[in-house]
Write a protein that binds this DNA or RNA. Structure first.
Lengths: 234, 234
DNA sequence: CGTCGCTTTGATCATGATCAAGGGATGTGG
DNA sequence: CCACATCCCTTGATCATGATCAAAGCGACG
């Protein structure tokens, strides 16, 4: 259940033929190394991150099925970020020239692709606001809701819960918090009857209250009814 | 002295004919209101920001000549962010359908545009890392160096200084700090002989040391020698 | 001359980091 | 079957970065 843009691209580029599957914990892009392809994730979950000079890790975002990984990681010289799988993951590398060739051969698809990337940027903007201006509790709540919404979009979450290998360390690395503090905040959320995380299962017990707490507005995740904009002529 | 991509786009779209000039302090996009165009800034400086529910302002980034403003602000329903000018600014609105039409008519340009946007995302990623994991001093140093580099690219900064109406409040709103603390950190940087800000003139007195302090790596701002990637055939 | 916008200073407070250690699964080799 | 290692979660005590509150200085400008 990939988003339309992703499956359309996959079809056009005949990506199945070159897809690869790796197990959990593999790096598919390494920061600082040359990288001249982007990757369409078709199954599995990965993170994009950077290790800072003091050894801290900052996770930039989570890559879910349908996401194009590496567009912002790739630079001509070297990748800006590393990408590592959290679960068994299937992905298709798309050489950058091939991707850009799409602009010549399938402009309409390219336009959609372009617009869908603007969604990633919007997510980053929201995360920036969160990390910059929100309390630890708000950040954690917001982050868990963002994941819920994104996973629902691709059919990997039900009404109020989802399953993924999310450690407290990862939460701290996404949000710029310390592990013990994440632990304490999660306890509070649990005691408040808002969220329960247990054995890789995240259950949002009270979505409305949590969303209010987090000031969560999911409009920035809306899939942009691009059809209205790039209407087929006639 | 606009970047090549911007001036190429401007030429093709015959934007001069519809350019507008507004004075400092004007909002050209308002969060929450409908917005169905993006804006190519040709002169002047603006900020993109959001006012949070508690009244705090988070500045997402600075828009300089050559930047396309509003791609991430625009959603079909309503803008995610506001954009306000800091100086007198000239800009050209580009209706979204027109922009997307470029993908049909000038795929090569569209590809460049696409790639240049990935630069904005990279900047956001860096800012996220900064706000999330760096100390106030590092953040401020990093921010001032980023501005220096970006302004140099478009000929608006010399070797080590630039002029723009940057208040301490704005620095605090970009970086998620309080005004008094920004003030104190700036004093330290001044006393250390690293940076001096006076009367809208920012002087980096010791670039190397400041860059080391900030762990500043400007590769993420590199203009991506896209020519190598989208080489004209033949 | 008063007001407004910005900078500066001081005192106190608190959010969240850090340090240190223990606990509970799960897995692995002897 | 047990030692032990590893990974992750949890808890406690202390510390510090940076927020908050309050007020004063300082031009510029009408």
């Amino acid at each position: 259940m990939l988003p339309p843009v992703a499956s359309e691209a996959a079809g056009l580029l005949d990506l199945k033929s070159v897809s690869r599957t790796v197990r959990a914990g593999q790096e598919i892009v390494t920061e600082g190394k040359r990288c001249n392809a982007v990757f369409l994730i078709t199954e599995g979950i990965a993170i994009r991150y950077r290790i800072l000079r003091d050894g801290q890790r900052q996770i930039i975002n989570f890559l879910l099925p349908g996401d194009f990984a590496g567009v912002t990681s790739c630079r001509i010289e070297s990748a800006l970020y590393s990408i590592k799988t959290l679960t068994q993951t299937t992905y298709s590398p798309i050489p950058v020239p091939r991707l850009l060739g799409l602009f010549d051969t399938h402009p309409r698809l390219a336009a959609k692709l372009f617009w869908s990337f603007s969604c990633e940027t919007a997510m980053l903007g929201e995360r920036l606001i969160g990390v910059s201006r929100r309390s630890a509790t708000e950040r954690i709540a917001h982050f868990l809701l963002e994941l819920l919404t994104r996973l629902q979009r691709i059919g990997l979450a039900d009404e109020r819960s989802y399953r993924l290998p999310l450690t407290q360390e990862m939460i701290s690395d996404v949000l710029g918090l310390s592990i013990p503090y994440v632990n304490r905040v999660l306890q509070q959320l649990r005691e408040a009857g808002l969220v329960r995380i247990k054995d890789q299962l995240v259950v949002i017990e009270n979505i409305e209250e949590l969303a209010a707490l987090a000031d969560f507005e999911h409009s920035y995740l809306e899939p942009l009814s691009i059809g209205e904009v790039v209407a087929e002529p006639g």
